[in-house]
Nucleic acid binder design. Structure first.
Length: 688
DNA sequence: ACGGGCTGTCATCCA
DNA sequence: AATGGATGACAGCCC
């Protein structure tokens, strides 16, 4: 390990770290060159300079300038740095003066890492395969070093590190990238593992579709760019590029990292700092030159082919766990620290006696104050997701204004809309400027902590009175208005919205196909949260929705009185309670209605059964009645057949009827009397 | 594409 | 008057 302080470093320096990795009997020597920021460079500035979107911005001119330029001094992609203001390639010359091969990257960190195998060529191939497997699994295959890397001036990791570029990675197996490697089987296996891990972290099924679409666009764009590059390049470069392509296509492999690839990669550097520098100048003599203590017996091709950064190299270790690998890869500027302090840098991967944490004092002041846990936590929690979104934002077809309009859609019952000015001024990074608003909003910082962690960048802190409570770190003068706009969007400072507005925002988000990417992120973040829970998080409500809803009125009022809550929070809490109560009531109502319907159906069935029974009984009774009538009729005729008048003649039943008296006597009465008596009774009844 | 079921929400009435 | 339950109506989502 050596710390170099070039004359131009302005307080920073160059750290050369030689690391030996022992993997499966093979030895991998890594020469890791880390650019250390000067103490005056704020971490945020470093982020701005090396953020995920900065690959299109800053670092190439940064390298060209050879110093730690401020973000607002950096150039957007496509604009050549001012040669007068930015001395050409000082850093590159410094590194080159060290006499070691290097691979210019648009990244600040670890852009000089190569491996050398000790032993036979098979070992080298094994390493190649291992390196390729690790790189290919997470997106930076050896072949990725080809100039086809989209949009960042040639850094393959910049493209592959984008979560949305993962779709392109997933197509990689279809390409012969890793298949030519001797360790191809193992590489594929590791690719699978890493890809699964990758997908488990960052992908959803819906996202994959977007990714594939975006990657297709990126491929198309990248192809166009390559063609443009070829067209813009001198003939010899174009020829070599073409030859390189043809060679790959003929061989059916992309793994052979040839000098043409190197040339193309170098020539793809926007700063063109290597113009006029021959390959021999870049790789003077043997790589054993200089201070590199490793016994490098590798040719350039191998050295370049083994170009893996430490992050990738560590992925070779199966025990190595990166919580969010694809995202972490997007945060190249932080990687030196991640690598230096990461617990994944196990003793097997470091030189004996090498205390990597001891490197920290070499770093700037603000770096000294950061522990590895701080860095990992802050970077991982607060930055990576943001970077994730940043990478979304850098995608083609992603219109920040469109997303802003989504937030401002007047789809709100309350009629409130986003106060864009407040939102824009309240943009802050929760990890960089711990705003007192979090405390001021609720007066319960401890309660808010989980929220801030859970919501990450999405909720940077609620600032009811930003002017008073939130002395924001205005960075609008950094020149990264676009990034600020994205921060405004992705931090989702919707705390100025009424709940209904929040709801409408989320609804409009989820209902617009064009915002699927962002909504996908939000869905991924709060997938299991209800809308009220998301609202509560957004406003840093220090109570759970369940508490708010289920708590008795007295306890609820006491709870509210114990906390300082803004009107917005109070309103949201009461809305949450009302909605929660009403939701339960609606559920009960529906359940009750369903029970009523079921009961009515049961009653209907019972009544129908009873009706059938009654019908049967009626039929039986009718049958009995008819039987009785028949019997009575028979008896009647039998009685008349036995009756005789005074003369002894049979009584005609058509002329007489039997009439029972009240005293039980039976009289034979002529029908005429009976009918006349009936008529009289009927008349009396009618008169009544 | 269409329809039905489920669910959340709002408005309203009532206790 | 405030609160909450009950319920109809509506809209969105999912199958």
């Amino acid at each position: 390990m050596k710390y170099l302080k070039p004359w131009w470093s302005d307080g920073g320096g160059l750290l050369h770290l030689t690391i030996l990795l022992s993997l499966a009997g093979l030895r991998l020597d890594l020469d890791l060159y880390l650019l250390l920021p000067p103490p005056t460079l704020l971490w945020d500035e470093l982020l701005l300079a090396g953020g995920p979107t900065s690959s299109a911005y800053a670092l190439s001119p940064f390298l060209a300038s050879g110093g730690w330029g401020r973000a607002d001094q950096l150039h957007p992609k496509g604009r050549e740095p001012d040669p007068a203001a930015e001395p050409e390639g000082r850093l590159l010359r410094e590194v080159r003066a060290l006499g070691v091969p290097f691979i210019p990257r648009t990244r600040v960190d670890a852009w000089l890492v190569h491996s050398v195998t000790a032993g036979d060529a098979d070992g080298a191939h094994g390493l190649l395969g291992a390196a390729a497997s690790s790189a290919g699994g997470v997106g930076a295959s050896v072949d990725d070093s080809s100039p086809a890397a989209p949009g960042d001036g040639g850094d393959p990791r910049a493209a592959a590190s984008s979560p949305l570029a993962a779709g392109e990675e997933e197509k990689a197996p279809a390409e012969p990238t890793a298949q030519v490697l001797d360790a191809g089987g193992r590489a594929n296996q590791e690719n699978e593992v890493l890809r699964e891990r990758h997908e488990a972290v960052d992908h959803s099924s819906q996202n994959e579709e977007n990714e594939q679409r975006v990657s297709a666009q990126e491929k198309s764009l990248q192809q166009n760019e390559n063609e443009d590059k070829i067209a813009d390049k001198p003939d010899w470069e174009a020829e070599k590029t073409t030859e390189s392509r043809n060679e790959r296509s003929l061989n059916g492999t992309d793994t052979a990292f040839s000098l043409e690839d190197l040339f193309q990669m170098l020539s793809s550097q926007p700063e063109n700092s290597l113009e006029g520098i021959s390959l021999g100048e870049i790789f003077p003599g043997s790589i054993n030159d200089g201070m590199n203590s490793s016994t490098h017996n590798v040719n350039f091709s191998q050295a370049i082919s083994h170009d893996v950064n430490l992050h990738e190299a560590m992925l070779l270790c199966p025990n190595t766990t990166f919580r969010r690998e694809p995202v972490a890869r997007t945060s190249q500027p932080q990687e030196p620290f991640l690598q230096l302090n990461s617990p994944t840098t196990n003793p097997e991967q470091t030189l004996p006696g090498t205390n990597l944490t001891g490197l920290l004092p070499l770093v700037g002041n603000q770096m000294r104050n950061l522990t590895s846990q701080d860095l990992l936590h802050d970077l991982d929690i607060n930055i990576f997701d943001e970077i994730n979104l940043m990478s979304l934002a850098t995608e083609e077809g992603f219109d920040p204004m469109e997303v802003s309009q989504l937030f401002e859609e007047p789809d709100s019952d309350s009629g409130l809309s986003l106060n864009s000015s407040r939102s824009s001024t309240s943009v802050t990074k929760s990890n960089s400027s711990h705003c007192v608003c979090e405390d001021g909003a609720t007066g319960s910082n401890s309660d808010l902590q989980p929220f801030s962690h859970d919501l990450e960048g999405a909720v940077g802190g609620y600032c009811p009175e930003p002017d008073k409570l939130c002395p924001m770190d205005h960075r609008s003068d950094s020149g990264f208005h676009g990034d600020l706009a994205f921060q405004h969007i992705f931090h989702n400072h919707t705390y100025h919205l009424q709940p209904s507005a929040l709801e409408s925002t989320s609804r409009s988000f989820s209902r617009h196909g064009k915002s699927q990417k962002v909504s996908q992120y939000l869905n991924d973040t709060d997938r299991n949260l209800s809308r009220d829970e998301q609202r509560a998080k957004a406003l840093h409500i220090p109570f759970s929705v369940d508490e708010i809803v289920r708590m008795p009125v007295d306890s609820f009022n006491n709870m509210l009185s114990r906390h300082y809550l803004t009107d917005l929070q109070m309103s949201l809490i009461r809305d949450i309670r009302r909605r929660g109560k009403n939701k339960v009531a609606a559920q009960n109502c529906r359940k009750r209605k369903l029970d009523i319907i079921l009961n009515l159906e049961d009653d209907l069935c019972n009544l129908q059964a009873k009706k059938e029974i009654l019908k049967r009984e009626r039929a039986q009774y009718n049958k009995a009645i008819n039987t009785m009538k028949q019997k009575l009729h028979d008896l009647y005729h039998d009685v008349f057949s036995r009756l005789r008048d005074n003369e002894g003649r049979p009584v005609n039943p058509n002329q007489y009827v039997l009439q029972c008296g009240q005293d039980g006597s039976v009289l034979i009465v002529p029908k005429e009397l009976v009918t006349s008596g009936h008529k009289k009774e009927n008349r009396k009844g009618k008169r009544k």
